Amino acid sequence: MLKTLYIVRHCKAVGQEPNAPLTSEGHFQAIALADLLFSCGIERVISSPFIRAYQSIAPLAERLSLSIEIDNRLTERVLCATPLNDWRERLVESFTNLDLYLDGGESSRGAMARGIAVIDEVLQQEASIIAIVTHGNLMALILKHFDARISYAEWEKLSNPDVYRVQFLNGATHVKRMICA
């Protein structure tokens, strides 16, 4: 049976904090995102609890008369609990060393596992077409699980918003980027 997931990175936000809302541009992007995904047949919407993720998908959910299911496992990955001057270099390293663990942070393997746990549950359920809204780093790690070629370079190219379609059919997985803003 064909299952299709639309993995969505949130629209532009005012910051990185969990309660950071969308910018005014981000609100317009959320409407454009709803226009793009409206005719895709989406039956379920699952989102990170962060405000920017919820606000990014709210226009679509409203147009489809769907509730937004919140899943805490879709929150952004924390690389390190304290700011790092060399955070980009460490992030690059985390895409090749999936077990790299920085103080108070989460390894790529750990973040990927919690994101994939959401996907695995969704694949066992009835709905065939699902939108999953998350954040850039976790999105890239989820996609890396299905396509080992996904690396820091793909993360760096992600836009706000961004959408990848992941299709599952007869044991095969197909990953395709749909948009970049």
Results as ranks from 00 to 15, higher is better:
residue 127 A to S: 09
residue 174 H to M: 10
residue 39 S to L: 12
residue 109 R to N: 14
residue 96 T to I: 15
residue 36 L to D: 09
residue 171 G to I: 03
residue 158 L to N: 00
residue 26 G to Q: 10
residue 177 R to F: 05
residue 28 F to R: 14
residue 69 E to T: 14
residue 174 H to A: 12
residue 104 G to C: 08
residue 29 Q to T: 03
residue 166 V to T: 01
residue 36 L to H: 14
residue 157 K to Y: 04
residue 28 F to M: 09
residue 26 G to W: 09
residue 100 L to C: 10
residue 84 L to Q: 00
residue 6 Y to F: 15
residue 27 H to P: 01
residue 29 Q to P: 02
residue 11 C to R: 01
residue 45 V to K: 05
residue 103 D to Y: 04
residue 52 R to W: 10
residue 130 I to H: 06
residue 40 C to G: 03
residue 116 I to K: 05
residue 176 K to S: 14
residue 43 E to R: 07
residue 57 I to K: 08
residue 123 L to I: 11
residue 143 L to K: 08
residue 21 P to V: 04
residue 102 L to K: 04
residue 5 L to H: 03
residue 147 D to F: 10
residue 106 E to P: 06
residue 115 G to L: 12
residue 133 V to P: 07
residue 90 R to Y: 04
residue 85 N to S: 00
residue 121 E to V: 12
residue 103 D to S: 11
residue 126 E to Q: 10
residue 111 A to F: 08
residue 35 D to Y: 09
residue 140 A to V: 09
residue 134 T to N: 02
residue 87 W to H: 07
residue 21 P to A: 08
residue 44 R to I: 09
residue 98 L to A: 11
residue 121 E to T: 14
residue 181 A to W: 14
residue 173 T to G: 00
residue 138 L to W: 04
residue 153 A to N: 01
residue 148 A to E: 14
residue 73 R to N: 13
residue 11 C to Y: 03
residue 152 Y to S: 00
residue 110 G to D: 15
residue 98 L to M: 14
residue 75 T to N: 07
residue 138 L to Q: 00
residue 59 P to I: 06
residue 22 L to R: 05
residue 113 A to N: 10
residue 165 R to E: 13
residue 176 K to C: 12
residue 149 R to H: 13
residue 115 G to Q: 10
residue 98 L to Q: 13
residue 11 C to F: 04
residue 67 S to V: 08
residue 8 V to D: 09
residue 127 A to R: 11
residue 72 N to R: 13
residue 101 Y to A: 11
residue 146 F to I: 03
residue 13 A to K: 02
residue 54 Y to H: 13
residue 91 L to M: 14
residue 179 I to N: 07
residue 147 D to N: 15
residue 4 T to S: 03
residue 103 D to R: 03
residue 161 P to D: 03
residue 7 I to A: 03
residue 20 A to P: 00
residue 103 D to K: 07
residue 136 G to A: 13
residue 116 I to D: 04
residue 39 S to V: 05
residue 59 P to G: 08
residue 157 K to S: 06
residue 145 H to W: 06
residue 4 T to K: 11
residue 8 V to Q: 09
residue 59 P to C: 05
residue 30 A to L: 11
residue 29 Q to C: 01
residue 39 S to T: 14
residue 67 S to E: 15
residue 95 F to V: 10
residue 144 K to I: 07
residue 163 V to E: 04
residue 122 V to L: 11
residue 92 V to H: 13
residue 176 K to T: 15
residue 162 D to E: 09
residue 84 L to E: 03
residue 103 D to C: 02
residue 25 E to G: 08
residue 37 L to Q: 11
residue 43 E to Y: 12
